[in-house]
Design a protein around this nucleic acid. Structure first.
Lengths: 186, 186
DNA sequence: CAGTCGTTTTGGTAATTTCTGAATGGAGAG
DNA sequence: CTCTCCATTCAGAAATTACCAAAACGACTG
């Protein structure tokens, strides 16, 4: 009863706690489970990989819930298992490079959400083209939307392939990017 | 009893229906109420502004629900009221320019979600700086995250200010944007 | 084999979100 | 003023989602 785990409890500093809670809230706004986001936040700030039971204790959620959350995070490829000598348990760590996290998550969401939407729009445009009984205005709207998403999608694919270094360069150009692109584009 | 409305029912074509349903699903994934997204989709493809009761009938949801959804969409500034001669009722129409929709929604989400996150991160970094008892590693992670979000935020602010025309130009450059930015950046 | 660990399933509850129907209020017509 | 039409608000119902504890299972280990 009293003895809980063999690992020392990971005490959250107030700052870490604040960050984790906020991250959890943000998660929910973006359609991500609160606990999943919290687990990620915890692993992100943790200086060492953590085993599932320690995560559960720290966040005060059920062990099984953590298991599911870790699974989900691994599905997004931003958390991975590592092993610690002398410990049989799996330990988990988050990717630490913020650009990398952003890149991977964006890619994944695009794949899961934008790409299917593009497929649906393609079907819609196709159907309305072969069977043009619907409103021509509607048809135009759907085509517009498809073109837009398609273009953004392509642009995104490019941008996302930039290495972290290049990004830092681009970010230094603040105030000039639009001008640059504008000139070339016109 | 039998007489329902004075407006003709707006019959959804299969294609419009498909789009609206999919848009609704996508909405839920992005933390947007399904009905809200559906109302928006309907208005987006509709060749004319629609009154609330017609929307309710078309989507088969309660009138009050539509009212709330329209309110929300107006809050996002992508739907507005217009009036039709000889009709007392408010009619609603969506912005039709896809880039404009994207721009406005992105701006709004940034304002509501990213900016507050930046504030929290600032506070965290501040606290951990004045009172450095926490893990230095955690501190570094938080600083990293703040820097990243801050930079992205700035870049975004710039990009989002591009007029629709410039965007189309940029989109034509596909395959060259990264190269361009890369050269200048290094 | 017995113990540890991780995952999955199950059955149930809690919390949150969404939706509705019944008010409420207001503006214009007569 | 009263009646009608319309929009909005709000309490609670309904639905969805999140969460938990317990159990079952398999893999692996000493």
């Amino acid at each position: 009863m009293s003895v809980q785990t063999k690992t020392a409890h990971y005490p959250l500093t107030p700052v870490a706690q604040k960050f984790i809670l906020h991250w959890g809230e943000m998660g929910t706004r973006w359609g991500i489970n609160r606990t999943v986001a919290q687990v990620h936040a915890l692993l992100f700030v943790s200086p060492r990989p953590l085993p599932a039971d320690e995560i559960a204790e720290t966040l005060a959620v059920a062990r099984s819930n953590v298991s599911t959350s870790l699974r989900e995070l691994q599905g997004w490829r931003i958390v991975r298992v590592v092993h610690v000598l002398g410990d049989r348990r799996d330990h988990f760590e988050s990717i630490k490079d913020v650009w990398e996290i952003f890149r991977i998550v964006s890619e994944e969401r695009k794949r899961r959400e934008i790409d299917p939407t593009l497929r649906v729009l393609d079907e819609c445009v196709q159907e309305v083209k072969t069977n043009p009984q619907g409103d021509p205005y509607t048809r135009e709207r759907l085509t517009d939307m498809r073109e837009f998403l398609n273009a953004m999608s392509g642009l995104f694919d490019e941008a996302i392939r930039m290495p972290a270094g290049a990004l830092k360069g681009v970010l230094k150009l603040r105030g000039k990017v639009v001008t640059m692109l504008g000139k070339k584009a016109v």
